[in-house]
């Protein structure tokens, strides 16, 4: 601490607050991230209007063409327009990111509330969650998809399963620390019924950390979907997704790197933006959380 106050805190040896926003000079980071994400969302919503070509129309005569006036970024191995596929690919990433976030919280929040409140249930539920967390998430998702087929819904469920324990643990820890607060004890003493106690007195404590955790889940889901598609265990290849495009582009990588480059760039920007927004939300909503997650 002293070293940093020597260098930039001026004459007074006042210890600077330990957890000032770490990207202090990069305050613009969340703003830029928000703008990027907004662009991607708009791109996904208005894909049919923006995309110059049909993303799944194959033109065998136009295979692997370099960028031209007709095909701004060129075409892939099936003669499909790369730009149009990139634009449509945003849809899958966003749907999966948001969908997994919503399902994981919808399942994890009630389980976490109950687990934090009932000791016996807690013991059982936490063992189950420990078990689920021990399975590497990509492997778990691969197993689910390989068994249930590769529809958008199964991919989302497959990605959600490993995320649920993280939500449950987070909610549980918040409930455990809140249930000894005097206001909760007062509510219990007043005879508040359990559903009201959980929903009105305990649940609101979880909102801030859940918003933060939710953005991280969203980013991780987008990443996992891309990994699944890349490995050939994602949604069917007829739907353009950034992961699918990279997977198909692998064969022609040395011939035409842009087939992998562009979806990779968009994927990275998208995940990065969501992560940065999560960091900003964390700094804003819960400075203590920052300490625990170690950033």
């Amino acid at each position: 601490m002293a070293s940093s106050s020597h260098t930039d805190a001026g004459a007074l040896p006042v210890a600077r607050p330990r957890y000032i926003p770490n990207l202090a000079h990069l305050r613009f980071a969340p703003t830029v991230a928000g703008l990027c994400l907004l662009l991607i969302v708009l791109m996904a919503i208005f894909a049919p209007l923006i995309a110059p070509h049909d993303p799944i129309a194959m033109l065998p005569a136009q295979r692997l063409k370099p960028p031209s006036d007709t095909f701004l970024l060129g075409t892939d191995a099936y003669g499909r327009d790369l730009l149009s596929r990139l634009i449509y690919g945003a849809r899958i990433s966003l749907i999966v990111g948001l969908g997994v976030m919503v399902i994981a919280i919808a399942v994890g929040l009630p389980l976490g509330l109950l687990s934090g409140y009932f000791r016996t249930l807690d013991a059982i539920l936490m063992r189950i969650m420990d078990g689920l967390m021990a399975i590497p998430s990509v492997l778990l998702a691969i197993a689910v998809v390989s068994l249930s087929g590769s529809s958008l819904l199964t991919v989302m469920i497959a990605i959600t399963i490993p995320e649920v324990p993280r939500v449950v643990r987070l909610v549980r820890s918040v409930v455990l620390s809140a249930r000894n607060e005097p206001y909760v004890e007062a509510a219990i003493a007043m005879g508040t019924r359990l559903p009201a106690l959980l929903a009105r007195h305990l649940m609101p404590n979880t909102y801030a950390p859940l918003i933060v955790q939710g953005t991280y889940i969203c980013a991780s889901a987008i990443l996992t979907e891309a990994i699944l598609s890349f490995l050939g265990a994602g949604i069917g290849t007829e739907t353009p997704s950034w992961g699918n495009m990279i997977s198909e582009g692998r064969m022609y990588f040395q011939l035409k790197p842009s087939l992998i480059f562009w979806p990779g760039v968009l994927l990275s920007i998208c995940i990065l933006s969501v992560n940065l927004i999560g960091d900003a939300a964390r700094d804003l909503l819960d400075p203590r959380l920052k300490k625990r997650t170690g950033a």
Partner: peptide, 15 residues
């Protein structure tokens, strides 16, 4: 660090 978390492993690999 944020980049490391955000850029997919296969993108880094191909890069």
């Amino acid at each position: 660090c944020v980049l490391g978390f955000s850029v997919p492993v296969f993108v880094i690999g191909y890069l």
